[in-house]
Design a protein around this nucleic acid. Sequence first.
DNA 1: CTTGACACAGAACGGATGTTCTTGTAAAAT
DNA 2: ATTTTACAAGAACATCCGTTCTGTGTCAAG
Lengths: 225, 225
Amino acid sequence: MAKQKGELKDRHKKILDVLERYQNTVGYPPSIREIGKETGITSTSVVNYYLNQLEDWEFIERDRKVSRGLRLTKTIKSIIDEMIQIPLVGMIGASEPVPVPGSDFNYYDPESSIDVARSLLPKSDQGNQLYALEVDGDSMIDAMVNDGDIVIMKYTQEARDGEMVAVRLTDKEETTLKFFYRENGHVRLQPANPSMEPIIIEDPSTVMIQGKVVLVIRQLSGKPV
Amino acid sequence: MAKQKGELKDRHKKILDVLERYQNTVGYPPSIREIGKETGITSTSVVNYYLNQLEDWEFIERDRKVSRGLRLTKTIKSIIDEMIQIPLVGMIGASEPVPVPGSDFNYYDPESSIDVARSLLPKSDQGNQLYALEVDGDSMIDAMVNDGDIVIMKYTQEARDGEMVAVRLTDKEETTLKFFYRENGHVRLQPANPSMEPIIIEDPSTVMIQGKVVLVIRQLSGKPV
DNA sequence: CTTGACACAGAACGGATGTTCTTGTAAAAT
DNA sequence: ATTTTACAAGAACATCCGTTCTGTGTCAAG
């Protein structure tokens, strides 16, 4: 879902982006040197190097010895269309507050981003208010979220009953993920783990909602559980 | 509707066809030499010669000095999609029978063909059963069809009431265009010109339907009426 | 008949473009 | 410490490819 085999790095993405933009705007594929100019790579051999990798991974097809003889694999082209890229802006843990992305982030600029299929997200959440956080530590286990998980958040300061939100309890200096319910004057924070007891907050003003959890991603790359 | 400025000849069409096919199948535009190979033109300068014309007429756009730097004009691309090419297989007159096209005609092979916008044809008639005839002589004036007009025919041997068909009266050795009606045992052939009297054929077996008229095209190129 | 426009072919030129080779750096592995 | 691997840059090379020039043949106009 997120990263690809052999790590799809920033330059690979830039190149794929250039390929698609060039084809759609100019009408024919770019040359190696033009790709270099667009992506900031000064050497033709380096562009060639990445193109070879992209070809190995079947992101593109190349006709060797042919000028501009390269094209996006159809499936990849559609995958790109179906993908939404979400910037990974930082960590979330028990103690630190939740970081919020700057309004101006470049599509390919962030040092790291998460690719998510649009179909995984509710349509109403597909705006650009999304950002991703990596979970640091075990403090979220009662929310069924492990250390290392990625949570996709939507920025909001309000929550409807039943939504999972990142809340900060100002009097406890603590940030957690909980299901949110507002009940006759107080707030109930319900852990995702049903075996755990809810927390009742008598004073709603001590509850700061820092975002709504849209998706949780756990990448199991063969590492022990 | 039919021909373009400066006469869009066979080679122009072939080249446009190659351009579109190449882009859709290979994924990038062809080179001049590849166009030559596809179209049977042996000289690069000749291909260049036609490409320049197509550029003048705004059928394509070219980026000079750039390999494969050519593309179909968007509008033209859509025009091609919206066009149907109908082979002009011969003449129709009073005396001769109506020629019928061979089943195998090549898209660009016929020495002449008529371009017709799909929107002008009923959807049900857009199959490949269509062919065009040029009207020879004044024998069709009672069908409001002049000498030199082009009639688009759909091959059929049966007709429904009210359709305009090409009929051959076997006992008169005569081919005409008439509206066709079948009425209690006999056939009524109604001229398009309302001031003319219908022809009643008592013996339907003498009426041979040779095709149904789908469209009549009259090209007024400034010549006197 | 001559002329000129047009269609066509072939060759030669030069710039554009993909490929490859050498060199270098830094991090990871041994 | 040494080797290996991944990444990067630049230059040199070999084609690919568009352009242009010369020449030929046809056909209609003058």
